[in-house]
Nucleic acid binder design. Structure first.
Length: 547
RNA sequence: GCCCCCGUAGCUCAAUGGAUAGAGCACCUGACUUCGGAUCAGGUGGUUGGGAGUUCGAAUCUCUCCGGGGGUGCCA
């Protein structure tokens, strides 16, 4: 399917070109795209375009006159219904009702993939998200990144990309030592020893439980084990817990990329070697520095500490080189706000290594608060994603996380999320789907079978609006992919559900006294089911048949 | 100090340089004895944090100030 607003914009540009050729508009350069919007008043049609206003200056002509000429020279197209011009210079378009009705058959023919696009065909994309250290349960912040990353993955697949969902398993480095030490101390506490955790240890209750568990299992036999033993115990338990949580949230990773492998296969050493050879790395104060400033960065960065241990930046660069070596056309890093500043340095590192970093995009998501409370993992004061999921369920978590632009702070409204009523926007959308299923069942029970309906009978404004909305799923997918902003889907889901509810009120579907119209409307209802189910699928939210 | 993100209705947030800035929640008033009322229709509610600038046109772009968050580690 094609993006409707883009097709209309193309027609308008063709009209402008034709008017230029006819000499009624001056021959200035036209923009590549004509932007369309939905007008606020229904008498202005389905779409309006401000192109004439933009052209007024370069053309040295009155915008209303420009709009009139473009209207006159619009090419013949089945898409176009009434057109009009309004002050101060808008060109308004109403879609052709017959064409709209005919699109129902197109949707039914294509099924739930009807709105998919093809511009990613033959390309591959990798989306890295969550990538939590195995040092504690997933937080609601990880949940946001997870839901955003998973939906972006769905969206990329919907435009044709072969998508790999990847979790960077960050299990080397100093944090893991702290984790091992923390668990060792918790175990010793379980033995009754009076030892205290240091400030930079992990204080969460989950390690207390793990420590007790180790005591129950091993007694005092591991009292002399070192931090690495405890690190492995903690890591295994926590990673398993994280995967369980992701499963509940409906996230299925394709690859768990292990940081250790970058050391094992020499990738990390290779980065050091190449950066040294190219003069992008130098020694100072016993440490190895990456000369980020020579590549436009603000500060040079340590990549190997004076003790010989790499900082996180070094394996990060190696990892991103590895992504490009695997041939991905598009790489998306879904990062929390705390990792945002490190991203440009990684890209500089990748480019210093000789790769083209332009295909690597960052999707930053701001932190999440619940009822206004900040959460911090090291202090142990946080609501886990597990707890949130148990409280309100995965559908509500996913939908709420996707209601906001990723870059906006998200204040999770627990009271609203717990509300199982009309107040909750998730149920508004799911209810529309359940209602659709019920109408279809009702129609079958009343003997409306088969697909003989004639869609030409559908000419009610509420029907037209619903069809238009269904077609706009392509626009929504296109925009969400272009901007890497999956939250457009939740807004669309509410609009589409609203259009269906409006249609349901105005247009009775199952009417034994009007079989022909009933059969036609039934087709529209089935098409609406594809649209709503697909939207919910892209969001990762269940589309229930009853609720 | 410096860098980045955010600031929009009482609350939580939308809005691709375009028309009278939109939804949901809250509050108020209504709706088919028929397909699910978890719905629908209407109302109240705004100096888009303040100020200046660019533009025919600014929530959107620029500058400045204020407020919130993040970063500025040889932590990740």
């Amino acid at each position: 399917m094609r993006v409707l607003s883009a097709s209309l914009g193309q027609l308008i540009l063709e009209g402008a070109q034709a008017a230029q050729r006819a000499g009624v508009l001056s021959g200035c350069t036209l923009p590549e795209h004509a932007h369309l919007s939905h007008p606020t008043r229904s008498e202005w049609g389905d779409y309006s375009c401000a192109l004439p206003l933009q052209l007024a200056k370069p053309m040295q002509q009155n915008p209303l006159e420009i709009a009139g000429q473009i209207e006159k020279y619009l090419p013949d197209s089945v898409l176009l219904g009434d057109t009009s011009v309004s002050a101060p210079g808008f060109l308004n378009i109403r879609l052709n009702g017959d064409w709209l009705a005919s699109q129902i058959e197109v949707i039914l023919g294509l099924g739930s993939a009807y709105a998919d696009l093809q511009y990613g065909d033959g390309k591959s994309a990798q989306v890295e998200f969550i990538s939590a250290n195995p040092t504690g349960p997933l937080t609601v912040g990880h949940g946001r990144g997870g839901v955003v990353g998973d939906s972006v993955s769905n969206l990329l697949a919907a435009v044709g990309y072969q998508v790999t969902r990847e979790f960077y398993y960050n299990n080397a480095g100093q944090q893991m030592r702290r984790l091992g030490e923390s668990l060792r101390l918790r175990y010793l506490q379980a033995l009754g020893q009076s030892v205290e955790l240091a400030e930079d240890h992990y204080h969460g209750a989950y390690l207390v439980e793990l420590g007790r568990g180790l005591y129950v299992e091993h007694g005092e036999s591991i009292v002399d084990a070192d931090w690495e033993f405890f690190k492995t115990k903690a890591e295994d338990a926590i990673a398993g817990n994280q995967r369980d949580t992701m499963k509940i949230l409906g996230i299925q990773m394709d690859v768990f990329f292990n940081e250790y492998s970058l050391y094992d296969d020499g990738s990390v050493d290779k980065v050091v070697e190449v950066l040294r050879d190219k003069g992008f790395a130098y020694e100072r104060d016993g440490a190895l520095w990456f000369a980020a400033t020579s590549l436009g960065g603000r500060d040079d960065r340590v990549i190997v500490k004076s003790g010989g241990e790499p900082t996180y930046r070094l394996p990060d660069i190696a990892y991103h080189c590895n992504k490009l070596q695997r041939g991905f056309d598009l790489v998306v890093d879904v990062l929390g706000a705390d990792h945002k500043d490190a991203f440009p340095d990684v890209i500089r590192g990748v480019e210093a290594m000789g790769y083209d970093g332009s295909g690597i995009k960052m999707l930053m998501n701001q932190f999440v608060t619940i009822k206004g409370n900040r959460m911090s993992k090291r202090s142990g004061n946080f609501v886990t994603l597990d707890e949130l999921l148990e409280d309100v369920g995965p559908d509500v978590v996913r939908f709420f996380m996707l209601m906001r632009a990723a870059g906006s702070h998200l204040d999770f409204d627990l009271d609203l999320a717990r509300e199982q009523s009309e107040k909750n926007p998730v149920y508004y959308v799911q209810y529309a789907h359940a209602r659709i299923c019920r109408v279809i069942e009702k129609a079958q029970s009343e003997g409306f079978l088969g697909d003989s309906g004639d869609v030409d009978l559908l000419c009610h404004p509420a029907e037209h609006l619903l069809i238009r909305r269904l077609l706009e799923l392509s626009d929504t997918i296109d925009r969400a992919v272009r901007e890497l902003e999956p939250h457009h889907l939740t807004a669309y889901a509410r609009d589409l559900a609203g259009s269906f509810h409006g249609f349901y009120r105005d247009c009775r579907v199952v009417d034994v006294d009007n079989k022909a119209l009933s059969l036609a409307r039934l087709k529209l209802v089935r098409a609406a089911r594809f649209g709503l189910a697909r939207t919910l699928e892209l969001l990762g939210v269940d589309a229930p048949k009853a609720m």
